[in-house]
């Protein structure tokens, strides 16, 4: 195709602006990675000397390791809970219609729409009266509230792509409701469930506001520890913790994307 000089200039301008926006979005995040490999005692950009020094510090410190394990424990429980409940909810919602459906959907997205700080105060008050502040259970339940809508919506999208006649065909061939679910519905919505699970994991792993309110000295997640650490002093070990979170979140995102591609490939066929 032929392009005039004006067109080429426009294109350069367009690419330039797009590049600047991309840099604006990504650079601050990526900047944390070199900061984690800084040999000095304070965060410096770019690092004056490259070193694994602060990674050693992070993993040598039992309290840092403990928060990472707690984060993974909470996120794993949330992933399982949100996936199971979210799948059940999505299947239930798919059978509703009219005003009931609208109401149930509104209830489900409620925790995501309500300002997090409001939710945090409410949950803190609730958890206090049940004596749950500072327990793993409180964190798991609170994070599940946030993760469940994502899981349910994700499964819902998958479910809508499944032809309801497949379920009719299976029951017509003699399969009971549970067998139809296990052999037809579940395999077809599995990519959606996996995608929802990853969302749930990341939601919990990232969560800081609710966690600050509900964590205690014994049960503390990684983001809460980072927050506390920064308020005292900004050492490169915080950058290490942040980089670990970044890598895990990206890995989770990549898994979700792969699951999505598989689903699209299947429905396109």
């Amino acid at each position: 195709m032929e392009t005039g000089a004006g067109g080429r200039l426009d294109r350069w301008l367009l690419h330039g602006i797009a590049g600047l926006i991309a840099a604006f979005l990504v650079l601050p995040i990526l900047a944390i990675v070199p900061a984690a490999f800084n040999g000095r005692s304070f965060i410096l950009l770019p690092p004056a000397e490259w070193s694994w020094r602060w990674w050693g510090v992070f993993f040598a410190d039992a309290s840092w390791r403990r928060t990472l394990v707690t984060s993974l424990e909470v996120a794993s429980c949330v992933t399982v809970l949100a996936s199971v409940l979210g799948t059940a909810a999505a299947i239930g919602i798919a059978r509703l219609s009219g005003a009931v459906r609208t109401l149930v959907l509104a209830i489900f997205v409620g925790p995501v729409v309500v300002p997090t700080i409001v939710l945090a105060i409410a949950l803190y008050a609730m958890a206090r009266s049940f004596g749950l502040v500072g327990t793993l259970l409180a964190l798991v339940l609170a994070h599940t509230m946030l993760a469940l809508p994502y899981a349910a919506l994700n499964v819902g999208v998958s479910l809508r792509a499944v032809d309801p006649r497949l379920m009719l065909a299976a029951s017509g061939l003699g399969a009971g409701a549970w067998l139809v679910f296990r052999t037809v519905t579940l395999p077809l919505i599995l990519p959606g469930i996996l995608g929802g699970a990853v969302f749930a994991f990341v939601t919990s792993f990232d969560e800081v506001v609710l966690s600050i309110f509900l964590a205690g000295p014994a049960v503390k997640t990684l983001p809460v520890r980072i927050w506390e650490e920064i308020r005292v002093e900004l050492t490169p070990v915080v950058a290490v913790a942040a980089t670990i979170m970044l890598v895990l979140a990206l890995a989770a995102w990549a898994i979700a994307r792969l699951a999505e591609l598989r689903r699209d490939g299947r429905t396109a066929a």
Binding site: D163, R165, L166, A170, G172, T183
Partner: peptide
């Protein structure tokens, strides 16, 4: 439906996309 022993051919076939030809026919 599952207790009627009726065979149905659907307008868009409603074949199970995640199963082979063999598994589709073998399902019932």
């Amino acid at each position: 439906p599952r207790r009627r022993n009726i065979g149905m051919v659907f307008q868009n076939y409603a074949l199970f996309p995640h199963m082979s030809v063999f598994e589709n026919v073998a399902y019932g």
